[in-house]
């Protein structure tokens, strides 16, 4: 039973990104995948809440694809969470619209893997930094999948991009197969 995948893509300077251009190209036309480019849809951050909720309803897997900015999500994704995940709809006593849908974070980070961890420069792991997203998933009764991260994009080689792209496409396929 295929599970339709909704990729919420958030990149304010997509045209300048090397890694995301490649990642997006590999998944946007996969069957049962809806590639939803938030900055393209809502350049003024004026998110159409009803439309977003309809999209969520129609999919079983939700992917946040974005660069890791200041240890967090880009602002439009936070705006999206603020507005779309309404009380009484996404959480709360009567809010069960998202129950059981998987939330997958797929992000790129400039720093290398070694910088993220107790011994590293940033002290915390990616998963620890993503605690707010994980807590959001929990509140919305959504299983939170282990974050998928391409680290070290400041120094990534073309081969590295190709490898990451193949890995990402495989991840999305796997999610879609359920």
């Amino acid at each position: 039973m295929p599970r339709p995948v909704l990729i919420l893509f958030a990149h304010p300077a997509y045209e300048k990104s090397r890694v995301h251009l490649s990642l997006a190209a590999a998944v946007r036309d996969l069957p049962a995948v809806t590639f939803h480019d938030l900055y393209e849809e809502y350049p003024d951050l004026d998110i159409d809440v009803r439309r977003e909720q309809e999209l969520l309803r129609a999919h079983e897997v939700v992917v946040f694809q974005h660069p890791f900015y200041w240890y967090s999500v880009p602002p439009i994704l936070k705006q999206w969470m603020d507005l779309v995940l309404e009380h009484g709809w996404a959480y709360g006593a009567t809010g069960r619209a998202l129950e059981g849908k998987t939330l997958q974070v797929a992000m790129t980070a400039g720093g290398r893997d070694q910088a993220y961890g107790p011994e590293g420069f940033n002290r915390l792991t990616f998963r620890e930094f993503l605690a707010p997203v994980e807590a959001t998933a929990r509140l919305c009764r959504m299983p939170f999948a282990e974050p998928w991260v391409v680290a070290g994009t400041h120094v990534i080689t073309p081969q590295g991009v190709a490898d990451a792209t193949a890995s990402y496409a495989a991840l999305i396929r796997r999610l879609g197969e359920g």
Binding site: V49, D82, L83, L85, H87, G88, G92, A93
Partner: peptide, 14 residues
């Protein structure tokens, strides 16, 4: 009518 998410009224009730 929009921006219900920034309105904590229903949250306070629940």
């Amino acid at each position: 009518q929009d921006d219900a998410a920034w309105d904590a009224e229903s949250l306070r009730r629940e």
